[in-house]
Design a protein around this nucleic acid. Structure first.
Lengths: 322, 322
DNA sequence: GACCGAAACGAAAATATCTTTCATGAGTGA
DNA sequence: TCACTCATGAAAGATATTTTCGTTTCGGTC
């Protein structure tokens, strides 16, 4: 009851304070948000020795103190619980509990503010936690770059072609092959006809069957992968609409592409091969294609999606449970 | 007792917040610093109705909840104190007190952090530029959540096992199958022996060949895909070290997993199937595994990487140029 | 140097808050 | 339908925080 009251608003019925707004102690009325260290310095002169010790501990290690109970902090500073509570009051909080809460907030802020220190490359001796942080950061960066650089006009044209296509082929090899398959899986789910031949020969065989109105998509980071260029060329020459998803807009593959979607190339290192960020970038492009097509064909895509979802539900939990 | 213990050990060292290493409850190992929203989403499916209400309130208004006592939050959500405490435990905290502290931290971070967020879902009539922006933002969010929620201890253990493995199998079906292949491709590039059987029967056939010292990794978002659980189980029973990469840390697949790596589950919508964000999350985890292993086996990994890079260079530009 | 008053301080009581236990009822599968 | 499991909240039990109150310390005065 009291807690709720205290945190909700200032105690209006407090008998102690008279008319003026300058509440208890010598300092601020509102609970300090993050300016705690400053407040401590300001108020330090008006504190007694014991309280100074407490305030010092609090300002010196917010995170550590936030983990302590009143008793703990009292012991740490060699004082008593009462003194700790008095200090909390002086700093503007209703009690120690609220000071502790503010302390936790401060600690969190400090920690998050320290985040941008991860610009460095991944090193061989980085602890695993750093690896996670750096990889996540890099991939986020890649996504932002890709989104910023993506040509929405080209994307829109590619989407329009896909939505109207009789059938679609997606070519990719190696890591890009997985992206190609990913796109294919998605397109199939909304009722389109799509293939992602894994074998280069098969790809060409497929490609020569395409004709005007069909779509062929080539996914290659370097833009120079012969095994991917060949089928795209075949499709191009037969009048199909061709799309290239590549990190090199000046590469050979674009010769045979009606629409070029550029993926971003972020810096790579020995421990972080280019394949990693190009994959992230390619997947974003492919997702955009998918969602765009799903929008355009919503009438038929929605039920198709629902149906495939439904069908797969039976595969879950039907086996493997004890 | 618990608190006293914590405070006694905490002392002046700043280890307080990130210290806990005990795998409490159902999977969450360390007390989450800022990954709370992600954790809530991840664990929500395994919660009871009442607990979901509590979790929802907590995720929806961290600042507000931080100002409430157990009783207050219980009343707000129409449940009991016991339920609130249970929820706090499930989220990985020793008790409500610590959840409250974390909540305060989260609130502080949110306030200081970036102001706006693209909260809207992708709509059928969104212009293509919006689709790109929203998708990129969502995937970035997924990455951040995943990184924050990833248990580095489990990850480290998995990396150690992989680096020492005689051979490695990676199981996955559908979209997760592509992730499995991605990991396999990478591991092969640094000279490890890895397979990602696509056929469920083949997978089991492979699995029974594993023995102690080998590693089996299952990738499944739902954690209930029988076709993936079966081979992992076979490997588990033969003494291989097993790893599960799943979005549901309480799902059947974890029964047979020595190490569980949790992927994050972000909100999905009709136009943005769960598969999309789970794939992003899975790929980050897999990348972390790869880099971790590459670090550990740097002596042999570096030349192997260089060699495979070299070998592929011949495939670029050798064909397809006019 | 002794005395007085005021303030600082901490021990312990009093209160609030958090945690655990346990009985009950809803839902589920046989 | 019945037995069974599990979610749930009420209340008891344990901790933490706040208040009370007496003791100690300090500074000044006679």
């Amino acid at each position: 009851m009291k807690e709720t009251f205290g945190s909700a608003g200032g105690g209006s019925s407090a008998t102690g304070t008279t008319g003026g707004r300058r509440g208890a102690g010598s300092g601020g009325a509102p609970p300090a948000p993050a300016a705690l260290a400053a407040k401590v310095r300001t108020l330090a002169p008006s504190m007694t020795r014991s309280m100074q010790r407490v305030a010092e501990a609090v300002a010196g290690d917010p995170a550590g103190c936030a983990a302590l109970t009143v008793t703990g902090l009292a012991e740490l500073t060699g004082t008593s619980e009462a003194t700790v509570v008095r200090t909390a009051r002086l700093l503007g909080y209703p009690g120690y509990r609220d000071l502790r809460l503010a302390l936790a907030g401060l600690a969190a802020q400090q920690q998050s503010g320290r985040a941008p220190a991860i610009t460095t490359d991944i090193a061989v001796d980085d602890p695993i936690a750093d690896v996670v942080a750096k990889l996540a950061y890099d991939e986020q960066q890649t996504l932002a770059d890709t989104a910023a650089a993506l040509d929405t006009v080209q994307l829109g044209a590619a989407v329009a072609a896909l939505a109207a296509a009789r059938r679609t082929d997606v070519y990719g090899i190696g890591a890009s092959g997985l992206v190609a398959q990913d796109l294919t899986q998605k397109l199939l789910r909304i009722g389109l006809i799509a293939h992602a031949p894994g074998d280069p020969h098969l790809a060409v065989t497929n490609a020569v069957q395409l004709r005007a109105g069909d779509v062929a998509i080539a996914i290659t980071h370097s833009g120079s992968t012969g095994d991917v260029i060949e089928p795209l060329r075949a499709a191009f020459e037969r009048g199909a609409t061709t799309v290239a998803v590549t990190g090199r807009p000046d590469s050979p593959v674009t010769q045979y592409a009606d629409h070029v979607l550029t993926t971003s190339t972020s810096r790579e290192s020995e421990l972080r091969p280019a394949a990693m960020s190009s994959r992230t970038s390619q997947l974003l492009v492919v997702d955009c294609l998918f969602v765009g097509v799903a929008q355009r064909t919503y009438e038929s895509a929605a039920p198709a999606l629902a149906a495939s979802y439904e069908a797969l539900a039976h595969r879950h939990g039907s086996r493997g449970r004890p």
